[in-house]
C-alpha cells in the first residue's frame, strides 16, 4: 500500500513532531520524553489529572483528545502497541495537580501491564495517587458472561468524554473513576471491517479479506472478528450491528442514548451517514431517544475500511458529561 512517509521507523516521532508544531496553543511535548504530550493550557490546582493513551495509528485517538473538557495528557505508543511506562509516568508527573491522576485506556494485555507498572511507579516513586478505568465496549470481542475480557474500541471516546467532563466539574479521583466506569458499563460497540490497513513497517495488509467480503466484529487492530461473509447493504449492516448491541444491553422505550458512528480510517462520511440513517430509524422504532450523535472518524485503525456503531445509555449524570463543551485539536464541541 502507498503511504506518504519518510522512513517507516520514524513515523511515530514525525507524526508527534508535526502535531505539536501544528497546535502549539493546545499541546506541548515534555522534554523528558518525546512520547509524552500534555495540554499547553493552564489547569486548575486541585483538578484530577486525566491521562489517556495507547498505540499510535488510531488518530484522532489518542493524542487528538488532549484539551479542555477531555484529557490533560497522553502517552503515545508505537503503532498499535501500548506505550511503555516511561512516557506514562512523565505525563502523570506533569498533570498531577495534587488531586491524583485518572488513567483511561482500552482493555488490552499490553496496556494493562504498562499502565499498571506506571501506576505502581507513580505511587512508589512519586507519591501520586493513580486510579484506572478501562474501556471494554466491544460486544464482539467476548461473550456477555466474560464481559471483563472485552477490548475497548470506539466507546473509549465516550469514556474519555465522561471522565474529562467530571474532572472539569471538580469531582475527586474516586468519582472521576466511578463516572468513567459507569460510562463504560453503559457503552456498547459493534464494528464491521471491509478492507485491511497496512503497518508502515511491514507494508503487509493486517488481515486477508476478499473484495466482496466484510467481517463483522473485526477488532481495530485487525484482530479477526466473529463472522466473515459477503458484503451486505448499509441498511443490513446497520441492522446487524444495532441488533447485537441491543441484545447485549437493556434499552427500554424512552431511554436516552448517545450514538457514535465511527469510521475506521478510509470509509467516507457519505457511508457513515448512510449507516447512521438506518441506526436512527431502528432506535426510533424502538422508542429509544437519541440525545446526541457523533458521526465521523473518532478512533481509527490507519487506513482500515469499515465502521462501528456505539451506543451509550445515559442517566442524568452522563447526560451532563455529554453536554460539556470540549476544545481539543482534533475534536471541538461547543
Amino acid at each position: 500500500m502507498k503511504k506518504l512517509i519518510n522512513n517507516p521507523k520514524d513515523v511515530v516521532e514525525e507524526m508527534v513532531g508535526g502535531y505539536v508544531k501544528a497546535h502549539p496553543s493546545y499541546v506541548k511535548q515534555l522534554p523528558e520524553n518525546e512520547r509524552s504530550i500534555v495540554t499547553a493550557r493552564k489547569t486548575r490546582e486541585g483538578k484530577v489529572g486525566v491521562l489517556i493513551g495507547g498505540g499510535s495509528g488510531h488518530e484522532p485517538g489518542f493524542m487528538g483528545y488532549v484539551g479542555e473538557g477531555m484529557a490533560d495528557g497522553v502517552a503515545i505508543g508505537n503503532i498499535f502497541a501500548s506505550p511503555s511506562p516511561d512516557p506514562i509516568l512523565e505525563v502523570t508527573k506533569a498533570i498531577d495537580k495534587g488531586a491524583g491522576v485518572a488513567y483511561l485506556y482500552g482493555n488490552y494485555a499490553g496496556d494493562v501491564m504498562n499502565f499498571g507498572m506506571a501506576a505502581e511507579m507513580a505511587d512508589l516513586e512519586e507519591d501520586i495517587r493513580v486510579k484506572a478505568a478501562l474501556a471494554t465496549d466491544d460486544v464482539a470481542s467476548a461473550l456477555k458472561e466474560e464481559k471483563e475480557k472485552r477490548r475497548g474500541i470506539a466507546g473509549e471516546f465516550f469514556v474519555f468524554k465522561a471522565a474529562g467532563a467530571v474532572a472539569d466539574f471538580g469531582y475527586n479521583l474516586n468519582d472521576v473513576i466511578r463516572v468513567a466506569q459507569k460510562a463504560n458499563e453503559n457503552t456498547r460497540s459493534m464494528g464491521v471491517g471491509l478492507s485491511p490497513c497496512s503497518l508502515p513497517q511491514t507494508g503487509e495488509p493486517s488481515f486477508d479479506i476478499g473484495d466482496d467480503e466484510m467481517e463483522i466484529g473485526l477488532g481495530h487492530h485487525g484482530e479477526p472478528g466473529i463472522e466473515k461473509g459477503v458484503i451486505e447493504t448499509a441498511d443490513k449492516v446497520a441492522e446487524r450491528l444495532v441488533h447485537d448491541i441491543l441484545a447485549d444491553i437493556e434499552l427500554n422505550k424512552g431511554d436516552k442514548v448517545a450514538v457514535l458512528v465511527n469510521g475506521l480510517g478510509s470509509t467516507p462520511r457519505m457511508e457513515l451517514y448512510i449507516i447512521f440513517r438506518r441506526v436512527e430509524q431502528i432506535l426510533n422504532e424502538n422508542g429509544i431517544v437519541i440525545y446526541r450523535s457523533y458521526v465521523g472518524d473518532y478512533i481509527t485503525s490507519l487506513e482500515m475500511g469499515g465502521c462501528s456503531v456505539t451506543l451509550m445509555k445515559l442517566d442524568e449524570e452522563l447526560e451532563r458529561t455529554i453536554d460539556h463543551s470540549v476544545d481539543c485539536p482534533m475534536f471541538v464541541q461547543k
Partner: peptide, 12 residues
C-alpha cells in the same frame, strides 16, 4: 527493551 517497545512483550 521495555522503553523501546511498550506493548505486551515489553513488560514481559
Amino acid at each position: 527493551f521495555l522503553s523501546a517497545v511498550g506493548s505486551s512483550v515489553g513488560p514481559l
